[in-house]
Design a binder for these strands. Structure first.
Lengths: 260, 260
DNA sequence: CGCCTGTCAAAGATATCACCATTAGGTGAA
DNA sequence: TTCACCTAATGGTGATATCTTTGACAGGCG
């Protein structure tokens, strides 16, 4: 068909990030190529995630369109999307009510993006990391059972590249290979719910490296563990893949529980 | 806290299920108390999840409003919600394009609901079960570290009740207690991404019992494992809680891998 | 002489808008 | 305390603007 496989991400960053968008509402910008309602959606969603719109607060459509200088339909669309994420509920006569965070659809990539951009970044980061710890070993086991031949070969290749890059000092290249490794495992796991997490994992890994949170000792043990994961998957040994991946995540686990 | 286990739904079944809704479009039913666009949303969402609208298929707003006898705004709202779930993309001039399943937001509770109601129920069920296997042990560990005192007591109570009910023959009561147990662990884990899965876990457990897929031997080993999980959480022993929960899920794992 | 490419115009579908209908929460009086 | 009325805010409608695709046509190149 006409769906080029080149664009293979787009899960977490629907738009090219707010590169130029200031915090100002900029009420009059009708000639924007980016959809008009996306701007409002981002603004309101981020406001809710950051806590500026606390739970229980009541908004109204008219307030929204006045605030952002948009029409009723746009405000309505925004509200509908937010309602889908369970960030708000809309009732007649009561308006739009911001919901408690415990009700949010915290797996929505857009919501994750907003939360990672907000003050509560650390909380979101910790949750995602713990999710990684839970999912990735089982995903590795699934990959050992269900990955395709090409995927197995590519995993072994990536593990070798990781080992090579770990000895050098190129952080960026190492990060890219690391992300590719973990993403490929998730996508090869044969479980679409695991595969759907690949965007989040890459955000977490990127964030970890960028923040310098990662104690950048690509220690031999960790690299060796990566290699064993790939080898176990290639051999179709699910149990070994799972336990090796647990070892990979061991230092991550230690770092996380130190904070908590 | 003030989160009683009584309120145990609301996550997966936003509406009281389609109790009266037939499959017929019923184009003229303006006096329905249930929102009009919810009807269209359910119809289209289910059509996509079931595969009747295959990936790459192009719909149009006009087609939607003709098909369901609704106005443009309702069709648009539906499309926007579906776009939020990444079930479709909407582009100018191209219309609404059904996306490949690999792009879906498979963690959206509504989407899970549709998929569980479709023909591909088994696939969704397997994914959810594997997700349970991955998450619940780590969640139990988190609960051991971060649960409140009330939650720990309640868990021990529920484990005892499970053991009592397991000796009797009341499937329904046992199922209810089992659901409450697993949900409480997820909610006590201190990780909102784990807590958000509680609705899915209860759907899986319910489905498993209803389908008779569960080999209903509430074996002493399993019951004992439940008890050990609760005790470990009460003691704050994360490692023991995690490993005990793995034992609880062991038979689930075996049943799943037999199929796969 | 045939094929390829770049440009231009028309059409088709969403994006946006102003407007009416409906209903539910609040308020005041009996 | 209860009931009825009122108003505020969403639910829903149809029309218009705008943008993107797509098809054709003309010109150039092999």
């Amino acid at each position: 068909m006409n769906t080029p496989p080149a664009n293979d991400d787009g899960a977490l960053a629907p738009q090219g990030t707010a590169d130029d968008a200031p915090l100002a509402p900029t009420p009059a910008a009708p000639s924007d190529p980016v959809g008009l309602h996306r701007r409002v959606l981002d603004a309101v969603g981020e406001a809710i995630c950051s806590g500026r719109y606390e739970a229980g607060r009541r908004l109204t459509l008219e307030e929204l369109q006045r605030e952002h200088g948009v029409s009723r339909t746009v405000a309505r669309d925004t509200m509908r999307v937010l309602e889908t994420m369970s960030l708000v509920t809309s009732g007649r006569r009561v308006g739009i009510v911001v919901q408690d965070p415990s009700r949010w659809n915290v797996y929505d990539p857009q919501l994750v993006h907003w939360r990672l951009a907000s003050d509560r970044r650390d909380e979101q980061y910790a949750s995602l990391t713990e999710l990684r710890i839970a999912v990735e070993p089982v995903a590795a086991g699934g990959a050992a059972r269900r990955a395709s031949g090409t995927q197995r070969l590519e995993l072994v290749r990536l593990a070798a590249e990781l080992q090579r890059l770990g000895q050098g000092g190129d952080l960026e290249a190492f990060l890219a290979a690391d992300i590719a490794f973990h993403r490929l495992i998730l996508r090869s796991s044969g479980n679409e719910m695991f595969a759907a997490l690949d965007g989040m994992v890459s955000e977490v890994l990127t964030s970890r490296t960028r923040q310098g949170l990662m104690p950048f000792h690509p220690r031999d043990e960790a690299l060796e563990a990566h290699h064993r994961v790939a080898q176990a998957i290639a051999d179709g040994d699910a149990a070994r893949a799972e336990s090796a991946m647990r070892e990979v995540l061991h230092e991550v686990r230690a770092a996380l529980h130190l904070n908590a």
